[in-house]
């Protein structure tokens, strides 16, 4: 394919990211992850494999964790995208961030944005998740540094912090 051909496919895209409406002109097949990083400068979302295998690119699309390396931006449509940059406010931390900090649940940190977004799914539940449930829920996210223990503890703790808040 020539560059011209790639660009011929460009289309205007309007999506909502972290509550803001964003517009750009891109080939419709551009993965959401690239769109966030390249077009919007939201580099918090990481690309560890671009193949759906590692989870480091996880974002929320209408509150559902999605591998942003696989989803074409044109497919997002009206749905709301949330990335790590939208987690927590200016000065205050999201309960997940607070719990990750308390548990030192990161080393190199590369997997963490994706894991945080995947973990939001646990917070909406009424009952605190068990460790085994969290372990299961994280099956799509790889971390090469931590061995997951601190991450699992943090997610369990975040549920409590979230209830208290």
């Amino acid at each position: 394919m020539t560059t011209a051909a790639i660009h011929e496919g460009s289309m205007p895209v309007t999506i909502t990211v972290n509550g803001r409406t964003e517009k750009a002109e891109v080939p419709g097949l551009t993965p959401l992850g690239d769109f966030l990083r390249e077009k919007l400068g939201l580099t918090g979302t990481k690309l560890g494999c671009r193949a759906g295998d590692c989870g480091s690119c996880t974002v929320l699309v209408d509150s559902v964790p999605v591998a942003s390396c696989l989803m074409p931006v044109a497919q997002v449509g009206e749905r709301a995208v949330a990335t790590v940059e939208g987690l927590g406010g200016e000065g205050d931390l999201h309960p997940l961030q607070e719990a990750f900090r308390n548990n030192n649940a990161s080393q190199c940190g590369f997997c963490i944005p994706g894991i945080l977004m995947a973990a939001t799914a646990f917070l909406d539940r009424a009952e605190p998740p068990s460790r085994a449930e969290v372990v299961d829920g994280l099956s799509g996210n790889l971390c090469r540094c931590t061995g997951y223990e601190s991450i699992v503890s943090a997610i369990v703790e975040a549920h409590t912090l979230n209830r208290e808040a």
């Binding site: 580099t43 990335t83 940059e85």
Partner: peptide, 21 residues
Amino acid sequence: QGIPQVDMLDKLRGSTKYIAD
């Protein structure tokens, strides 16, 4: 003391700039 890593907040906010960023 088991204090949190000093660069933890950047990592948790996605603001750490790795080379690809």
